[in-house]
Design a protein around this nucleic acid. Structure first.
Length: 272
DNA sequence: CAGGTCTCCTGCTAGC
DNA sequence: TGCTAGCAGGAGACCT
């Protein structure tokens, strides 16, 4: 499941192949990808737009075109692959981009959870990314900011870390890792955290995500940044997906519980 | 406003 | 061996 480090890895890979290239046309095989947008209009507007840059906000990719941003969220299983123009369309390939009449960039998504959104550059502040909270490296992310955001949150910190409107980019894997390194029990209410805990969350969020980016992301289930390219960060996980195994720090058996409907892994002894 | 539940979607796996 | 029920989960809709 792509979180910030995986999306960042995909962004870099896409940018190296697509920067300066032109989208001759697109084929949309599954209308729901564009949610409530008029797909005929999207097809018309995107024709002959050049990909000038590819940016990232949280878990969203932003293709910067001439007049628009094409926003793309991979959700659980979304990925981009390259094919020859005449390559047969495979199941799960939902959007096809003809790039310079040279090759076909294909958005593939087994579960069809991923979303795209074509927005005029001027309207970017009126798009899904407008609501996103701070990037982990934003200088405004500090104890005071979190204290304010968490003050009315009675939900478990695990759930609140997944709230994209506070810190953006953290998903289920890295939330578990951040809480382990911060020695915080995932059930603890966000509003009960001490300043020291908040500072630890900030520091460890950056640390965990930076390490994961360095490793090209975490490959659990089906994540690949490019076809045949998998990340290595799964080898660095302290608790996530390690149910029944020993904690690397204290040898206590790692426990798995459900918090807010999400599988949550933690060490009962290290995380108080 | 806060928070709980449902929904989307399909491949995989545990269990019979 | 082959079938099926249940699980996985990011984020938005909808309800209390």
């Amino acid at each position: 499941m792509p979180e910030l480090p995986e999306v960042e890895t995909v962004r870099r890979a896409l940018l190296s192949k697509l920067k300066g290239r032109q989208i001759k046309e697109i084929t949309i095989l599954h209308n729901n990808v564009f949610q409530d947008q008029d797909v005929e209009l999207v097809k018309k507007l995107i024709k002959n737009q050049t990909i000038n840059d590819i940016l990232r906000r949280g878990k969203w990719l932003e293709f910067e075109l001439d007049d628009f941003y094409l926003l793309s969220h991979l959700r659980m299983e979304g990925k981009y692959i390259y094919r020859k123009l005449d390559d047969p369309i495979q199941k799960h390939q939902l959007v096809l981009f003809n790039i310079d009449d040279d090759f076909s960039l294909r958005y593939q998504d087994v579960r069809k959870f991923g979303k795209m959104y074509l927005v005029k550059k001027d309207d970017i502040n009126n798009s899904p990314i407008n609501k996103l909270g701070l990037e982990p490296w934003d200088k405004n992310l500090n104890v005071l900011y979190l204290k304010d955001k968490y003050k009315n949150k009675s939900l478990p910190i695990k759930t609140v870390l997944l709230d994209q409107e506070i810190i953006t980019g953290i998903g289920n894997i890295y939330a578990d890792e951040i809480l382990f390194l911060s020695k915080i029990n995932p059930f603890k209410k966000a509003k009960d955290l001490k300043n020291k805990d908040l500072q630890n969350i900030i520091d460890n969020t950056k640390k965990v995500l930076e390490k994961a980016i360095e490793e090209g992301g975490t490959t659990i289930r089906s994540y690949t940044s490019e076809e045949g390219v998998t990340g290595n960060n799964q080898n660095n996980l302290y608790v996530h997906q390690r149910e029944g195994k020993e904690c690397f720090v204290c040898k206590t058996i790692i426990k798995k519980d459900r918090i807010g409907g999400r599988g949550t892994y933690y060490c009962k002894k290290c995380q108080k």
